[in-house]
Amino acid sequence: MTAVAARPGLVDLCALDRLVPDLGVAALVGDEQVAVFRLADGSVHAVGNLDPYSGAAVMSRGITGSRGEVPTIASPVYKQVFSLVDGQCLDAVGMDPRPGRGPDLPVYGVRVDHGRVLLDPRPVR
């Protein structure tokens, strides 16, 4: 067991080594599911794992990329593209989100400390 002096409120998800560049993973934080990505440039991002357009918890299994300068994640179900920076849906591919859901993904604060990936479970937006 790695002892990590986590800041109060931060959740220790896993070792940074566990994240393969550009391959997302899902994490369970209480009742919420979070999709965490380590990009090729070393940055780590976390957004909601629930895809608002299909209702399935699959965002971690999408393909990362970019739109202009913005790093993105595409839903593996119907291919909507979201910003990894602010969660905004950049391309809805002509669809509406499922009833009761907004178009965007929640974004979580995440940081790397002593080789561990730490998540702030309260969404930034």
């Binding site: 998800l13 566990r18 391959l23 993973v25 899902a26 369970l28 599911q33 965490v36 209702g55 918890a57």
Partner: peptide, 15 residues
């Protein structure tokens, strides 16, 4: 790579 959750590898997707 075939873990449901990185911090709970065998827990099924609760949704």
């Amino acid at each position: 790579q075939f873990a449901s959750f990185v911090n709970a590898p065998d827990t099924p997707d609760p949704t």
